[in-house]
Amino acid sequence: MLATTYRPVRFRWRYVRIPVAAVLMVLYFSPIYWMFKTALQPEHEISLNAMNLFTPSFTLENFARVLSEPRFFGWVKNSLILAIATMVVAVLVSTLAGYSLARLRFWAVKFLGRPFLLAYIVPSVMIVVPVFVTFAGIGWQNTYHAIIITYTSFAVPFCTWLLRAYFLTLPTELEDAALIDGCSRLGALFRVIVPLAAPGMVTAGLFSFVLAWNEFLFAFVFVFSDDMRPLSVGLMATILEAVYGSSADLSIFKVGAMFALCVLAAIPVLLVFLFLQGWLVRGLAAGAVKG
């Protein structure tokens, strides 16, 4: 009863916010809509410069052209390897570090934990060369583990900060109970804390996965062999060749097909985000509050 009696202000706001949200959404999604629309449009319509906002003629020929390109599946496979490996390693490393910062009492750890977020003030353009030279020095050029280690180090500061904050919100009593029952500290971490921290873990994992899936500068510099390129580098090579190159004989280098390629590169992550957004909000909620 009480909850409904003093809400007249909220009530009007509710009617305003839906049209406002609708207008914002139309503006915000026009690029994505346009990407999908162009990908579904026949090539001759695009090249004739006779495009309209709404195309009457849908076709899947652009997608067929991309899927008939054998290199595409190689790129997807390489991107999946890099993204999944980065996700697993980054979440594992950050879980341990976050647990250490949140629960284990030792002065040096507090000292180490503070500057973790400061890692982001390093401009990535400048560390490409020193990192590449270091890896080349130990013979790791053109390997996946060099890239995975690099991506992991980019994901770890944020994930550690997030997981530390999440662990802090969990009650210590559950962990104490596990310790009294004879569990080791690491056992308590993996059997009690980790299952409870699922939203935080999912958020950290998604963050690392997306970072690795979308990154291209380091992959572009680190990988030389064609069959090891991830999707982002393959996409860039295709677009650069299409825009600046003269190799028009390759059928994939058409505007419509490139948009189809863009759609295919974005779709896996788009789906994951749509389904897991509730977990993302819950995972960030703890981190956002604790700071």
Partner: peptide
């Protein structure tokens, strides 16, 4: 909410390419 976070999931290279297309003189939205 899920729709509003979609641009995060789109690779940088795709973002740049699509927006160049949106701003482009010939077939831009």
């Amino acid at each position: 909410r899920g729709l509003f976070i979609l641009p995060w999931a789109i690779p940088t290279i795709v973002t740049a390419f699509v927006w160049r297309g949106l701003f482009s003189p010939r077939y831009g939205l």
